[in-house]
Simulated scan of single mutants.
Amino acid sequence: MPRPDLSRFYPLQLAVLTVSDSRSSANDSSGDLLCQLVQSAGHQLVARALLANNKYQLRATLSQWIASDNIQVVLLNGGTGFAAGNCTVEALTPLFDNEVPGFGELFRQLSFNELGSAALQSGALAGLANGTLLFAMPGSAGACTLAMQQLILPQLDGHTGPCNFVAHLKNSPTSSCGA
């Protein structure tokens, strides 16, 4: 199979979902940050939502986005820790066709350098569903920045070699990595 053209940048279509019982559109600073990072990187923001911790509402929204032809990546922030009522991990996990275990593992490792053993309580995770890549991260601005800059954005860039996720997304102009 031919490898993706690593000399090209492929703008992707992303959605941002904030999961919170206390945030509103007026004070969703982490959601705002994710949108800004996505657009600054050259990608297109095609959907955004803010939902309370209700796993069935989360699954309904995510299922629509996964089924959509125009959303390739979903960024979720919030609801991943052990606080009472958090349900992002429980809502998201059954939707995956394939989990991407390295995301959560690396996120917790990088978080450990800043937070120490509290990083154990992060339920950060990622996976693929119907050619849609989903990343769930904690809701703090620091966690979103860490995840986006060190892990997610490099993997959403067709320049990143030897492999990146661009080739694995629905409606991708590239073919799969042969690594």
Results as ranks from 00 to 15, higher is better:
residue 140 S to C: 09
residue 90 E to I: 06
residue 177 C to H: 13
residue 112 F to I: 05
residue 89 V to H: 06
residue 160 T to N: 12
residue 51 L to C: 11
residue 57 Q to F: 13
residue 174 T to E: 11
residue 59 R to P: 09
residue 127 G to D: 06
residue 72 Q to N: 02
residue 95 L to I: 01
residue 122 S to E: 02
residue 56 Y to D: 14
residue 85 G to F: 06
residue 100 V to M: 07
residue 46 V to G: 02
residue 58 L to R: 09
residue 69 D to V: 10
residue 19 V to D: 02
residue 106 L to K: 08
residue 39 Q to V: 14
residue 123 G to A: 06
residue 120 L to N: 05
residue 152 I to H: 07
residue 96 F to I: 09
residue 39 Q to E: 15
residue 147 A to Y: 02
residue 175 S to I: 10
residue 126 A to M: 01
residue 49 A to D: 15
residue 148 M to Y: 09
residue 8 R to L: 11
residue 153 L to E: 00
residue 96 F to C: 05
residue 103 F to T: 13
residue 15 A to L: 05
residue 156 L to Q: 04
residue 3 R to D: 13
residue 85 G to V: 13
residue 38 V to W: 00
residue 147 A to F: 03
residue 60 A to R: 15
residue 16 V to S: 06
residue 19 V to T: 08
residue 95 L to C: 05
residue 131 G to L: 02
residue 176 S to A: 14
residue 138 P to S: 01
residue 107 F to L: 14
residue 113 N to A: 15
residue 174 T to N: 04
residue 170 K to Q: 04
residue 14 L to N: 04
residue 142 G to A: 08
residue 101 P to S: 10
residue 112 F to M: 08
residue 32 D to P: 01
residue 53 N to S: 14
residue 68 S to V: 12
residue 8 R to G: 02
residue 155 Q to R: 15
residue 174 T to Q: 13
residue 166 V to M: 04
residue 143 A to L: 02
residue 152 I to C: 04
residue 79 G to H: 09
residue 72 Q to W: 03
residue 54 N to M: 05
residue 5 D to W: 05
residue 153 L to S: 03
residue 120 L to T: 10
residue 99 E to Y: 09
residue 44 Q to R: 09
residue 114 E to F: 08
residue 112 F to P: 02
residue 7 S to T: 15
residue 135 F to Y: 14
residue 19 V to P: 03
residue 100 V to C: 03
